[in-house]
């Protein structure tokens, strides 16, 4: 077993031991969505219009919340040092870490989203679009976010900083994903948006692990 697979296994095991780490962002996701009808208007017609956008904004914030811890513990406990000492590809490691993050945040968010769709009176036609956009879009959030997490891993109170760095980069994902859900709700096609999300995912898989790997090395020379 190589270090990469061992790390993926170990991180999944850690997530199983500390379920709070991935459950808390999920509850946050639920609560943020619940605020919108309270704050704005519970009228189902209105909610149906904003459902896709609200669910996506909440998913994005929940992802950011869980990203902070992605590399912090690894920097603090010497795991990072062992990675660098092993001489194994940091690109693969960064990709593996992003995968674990997605399994613990994006995937449960996607699974939970239909419930929120009910609460937000999401039009029936939009459910597949929402699931599909989350399934393709949330890995991009994990990948891009892992760059920010690697950059801020050594910074005290890096969580807020991480959000500042990464939120502007999430804008394209948000635009296309929310628009896919919205258009599906109107009964229009949304292939273009999903296609664009797919292209961004391919780009993110290719490029972001390099940036994350380069950023990880910075945390060593303290």
């Amino acid at each position: 077993m190589s270090l990469v697979t061992a790390t993926i296994r170990r991180d999944l095991l850690l997530a199983a031991r500390n379920p709070g780490e991935w459950l808390n962002p999920l509850m946050f996701f639920l609560m943020v969505v619940a605020l919108f009808p309270l704050a704005v208007d519970p009228d189902p017609k209105f909610l149906a219009r904003i459902a896709g956008g609200v669910i996506w904004v909440a998913a994005l914030l929940a992802t950011l919340l869980s990203l902070d811890a992605l590399y912090k513990a690894d920097v603090d406990d010497g795991t990072l040092e062992q990675w660098l000492a092993s001489g194994e590809s940091l690109y693969l490691l960064a990709l593996g870490k992003a995968l674990v993050h997605w399994l613990c945040s994006g995937l449960p968010l996607t699974i939970m989203a239909p419930v929120l769709g009910l609460m937000m009176a999401l039009p029936n036609d939009a459910y597949w679009a929402m699931l599909l956009s989350l399934l393709i879009g949330t890995p991009i959030l994990s990948l891009l976010g892992s760059v920010g997490a690697a950059l801020t891993a050594g910074v005290r109170s890096g969580g807020l900083l991480l959000s500042l760095l990464i939120l502007p980069m999430y804008v394209p994902v948000l635009i296309f994903a929310a628009s896919a859900v919205y258009h599906a709700g109107l009964g229009m096609t949304y292939n273009g948006q999903i296609g664009f999300l797919g292209a961004m995912l391919a780009l993110a898989v290719c490029l972001t692990p390099f940036a994350a790997a380069a950023a990880l090395k910075l945390n060593l020379s303290r």
């Binding site: 077993m1 790390t7 170990r10 062992q82 000492a85 092993s86 194994e88």
Partner: peptide
């Protein structure tokens, strides 16, 4: 290193498995 790369939530055997994985 000065820090061993030990995860506190895991058991010694689980930690050791990771440490020797390369």
């Amino acid at each position: 290193g000065h820090l061993a790369g030990i995860k506190r939530a895991l058991t010694p055997i689980e930690n050791l498995r990771w440490l020797v994985s390369p």
